[in-house]
């Protein structure tokens, strides 16, 4: 699988990572190399079985009891920016 420059830019947009020109070129080559390798291998085998999920559980519930949680100060202690007890970011809707 050869990844084009446009595909690399598309993936980086999906992943919300800005890439430099150098990184776009580098990842285009490296990811193509890695995926070609994987494609060749995966083409050699059928895997018509259900995907494996280890220690599969469903509907794990805890008792509906109040218990201590972190305080507002603790939650905000690592915030890059805050105001009046809230995390502060640039406007989401413009």
């Amino acid at each position: 699988m050869k990844l084009t420059r446009e595909q690399v830019i598309h993936i980086s947009t999906l992943a919300r990572i800005k890439l430099t020109e150098d990184e776009i070129t580098r990842f285009s080559d490296e990811l193509s190399d890695i995926l070609t390798n994987f494609d060749e291998l995966l083409a050699k085998i059928d895997a018509n079985v259900d995907p494996l999920i280890l220690n599969e559980l469903s509907g794990v519930m805890r008792e509906d009891e109040a218990r201590p949680s972190l305080t507002q100060d603790e939650i905000l202690s690592n915030a890059p920016d805050q105001e009046e007890g809230c995390f502060k970011v640039k406007a989401v809707l413009e």
Partner: peptide
């Protein structure tokens, strides 16, 4: 872009793809 190093970006890219 600034926070992650190259290998982390590489894996996020493979995984996102």
């Amino acid at each position: 872009e600034d926070g992650f190093g190259t290998e982390v970006k590489r894996r996020i890219m493979i995984g996102t793809y």
